[in-house]
Write a protein that binds this DNA or RNA. Structure first.
Lengths: 231, 231
DNA sequence: TAGTAATTATGATTAATATCATATTAACAA
DNA sequence: TTGTTAATATGATATTAATCATAATTACTA
């Protein structure tokens, strides 16, 4: 991990409207001076379960996974997050330590804003407080909704769900490079690596997708949607 | 559902320290006049997925389940909530309609506070805003943590988990009346009714619990903890 | 660039769970 | 009270997914 030398400040950040558009000049100054942008490489751990929470985390560039490790040592992925997401927001107002770990799936830039500064702004700026509540609610809802969707399906449906998630929510296209391994897909949908691989092979054989190394193309989107709904 | 005639106001509510202790006299007045307490009987639907969100919901007495229905018509229970819990808090700041349903598992009293009043308080009272964020974060974390715990276990471990949850978090004792049917237990842990019943019978045969109608006693707490961790 | 480890891949077998079937008991309403 | 429905219960069978085994390929590193 290294510190970014970008001259970007919050006011010129393309994601400012997601949160900081409620601030005035003075408040912008406060956030900017309490802010550091860090760069992580693929595979790097950004935060580990148990780490003390000292700042608010904002994903500016890249892709990360939020995960927890169970007492067998097996990882369970809670969510995959993309630029603009508040990757610390679940815990910072109720816990003193992270209840999950975060690691980079590709080169990732994370803005960290010292927590006391953020809390002061929440306490002093009502519109900002409502915006934080709104965004925080949204990210939790997404994780809960996702786990609900996964739980009602079996392997085929779960894999289809993940492929559609990557195509629609992350890459906005039908061809993309898998950002996670088959094992990680399994950790995301509570399935073994072998069955994950097997199911992808089956989709390929059935002409629903094509695979070339890490690159996946969805050939029959409609059928994938159907599978994601039924099985 | 009927309206309560209780003379209780927020200031004298035993749960006031969970949220309202940050308010001054005038603000208390605002909450009290925007507040109605409703009483629901066992089985009554309190809110239905899709209902418009008009108020903040506070569970004062009783027990409820939060659940979603999938497109096969099968219910999935997200959580069981008890007095003091904010049963609307996941959605009210990011959605206009409920994304889940709420129903009463026993006689339940719910305080409803008109949403605009609550939002005004968040915007004008910083300490109150931080408290709301804190409590909101907490309830989401619990649901996510729970789904993580359930997902790493198989039937026996899941049933053990639920029995421990009821004993430790809801009834604070080793003997209690099951507030939900076996089918609902299954909906809570993503298992069929038959396997839920089978597993409970097995626990009984093994001397871990005893069952008398709806009443369950945990006879061997240590063993139950062990099962909840391993299987 | 050779060697090592991780990932992808597939088959065979075992274990877990769902489904189907059928009673029994409990709860509820007419 | 009786009829009706929901809940609990248990066995047999089918389905699904996990585990074990082994190999090929890819990625990483010394």
């Amino acid at each position: 991990m290294k510190t970014s030398n970008d001259i970007i400040n919050c006011r010129s950040c393309i994601y400012r409207n997601l949160l900081y558009d409620k601030l005035n000049d003075k408040e912008y100054g406060q956030v900017n001076s309490a802010r550091t942008e860090y760069i992580y490489q693929r595979g790097e751990l950004i935060k580990q379960e148990g780490d003390k929470i000292k700042s608010f985390l904002y994903l500016r560039v890249g892709l990360v996974k939020l995960f927890k490790t169970d007492h067998f040592g097996k990882d369970h992925i809670l969510s995959i997050n993309k630029p603009g997401d508040f990757i610390s927001l679940l815990s910072i107002f109720s816990n003193s330590t992270y209840k999950y770990s975060i690691s980079a799936l590709e080169e990732t830039h994370v803005c960290e804003v010292a927590l006391p500064v953020l809390k002061n702004l929440v306490a002093s700026n009502g519109a900002f407080a409502l915006k934080v509540l709104n965004r925080m609610s949204h990210i939790s809802d997404t994780i809960i909704e996702n786990s609900f969707r996964i739980n009602q399906k079996q392997v085929k449906g779960r894999i289809a769900h993940i492929l559609l998630f990557l195509a629609d929510k992350i890459y906005h296209g039908h061809t993309f490079r898998m950002p996670i391994t088959r094992r990680e897909v399994g950790e995301l949908i509570s399935m073994t690596t072998e069955n994950t691989i097997r199911t992808l092979s089956e989709f390929k054989k059935d002409g629903i997708i094509s695979m070339d190394g890490k690159t996946i193309s969805i050939l029959d989107y409609g059928r994938l949607v159907k599978v994601s709904k039924s099985g």
